[in-house]
Amino acid sequence: MFTWDLLANAVVAGILLGGFYAAVSLGVSLTFGLLDVVNIAHPAFVILGAYAAYVMNSSFGLDPILTGVLFTPLFYALGAGVYRIYYSSFERRGEESLRGLVFFFGLLFIIEVALSLKYGVDYRLVEAAYIGKSIDLGGVGIAFRLLVPCVVGLLMTLALSLFLSRTFYGRAVMGVSQDQVALRLMGANPVRIKTIAFGIGIAAASLSGALLITISPVVPSTDRDYIGRVFAITVLGGLGSVGGTLVASIILGVAESLMATLFGPSWSLAVSFGILLLALAVRPAGLFGR
């Protein structure tokens, strides 16, 4: 039965979900939006981050989000390494468009299969004191398992946006796909800049994986739910716009949450693409594209 309370709850849950979607999408906004690297393996690194949180939580009782933060240097290094391989095998030879896509698709597949072999296809979850708790604000419940990821997502958005706008590396990342020769004339090495940016993108993916497993249990194939979603958010937000990614994430979160409340959860992905197509018809550059 429909009530205003139900609606308010759905909207609030959607906003919280949006903060988390932003965390998952930031890396793609960076690698796809700013570096022109179609990293469709991004969600697989999200799941890898989720399993890292799971392992540390089940073996040592470590808080999932703390694990996520502690593991970022490792995933940064992994991302930097992946980009180097991609660069020397494809990008340098100008073969990035199709073969590069195959490379990342392969990577996605390998990570998913490796996780299935090691941990099976059972749902894995983490335990933390705040999971299961919630506060009640006049009939609207705020679940901590959604609130904490949302706050972390907002902090990640803020950090990335400050990195891009305030640091020399950040500005170089914004310029690198526009003119690499010009960037070299500024004294910056484009390959180095892209390596750093890609590393940050993968580190963000892994941290958002820790958020994901805090919100709900995960299996290796959960990545598939996110491939469409993160690219829809990135394009909708305007390629490479961090603020736009956040706004698009919240729009999508609220829309999905409303549809799930009103018509059932199976609608959610259709909603993502429905909104994307509609928005692009009106504004091809996305909401905040330059």
Partner: peptide, 13 residues
């Protein structure tokens, strides 16, 4: 120039 960067961002680069 970096066409999709602002004047100031170009200068800072």
């Amino acid at each position: 120039l970096f066409p999709r960067l602002t004047v100031e961002e170009n200068l800072l680069l």
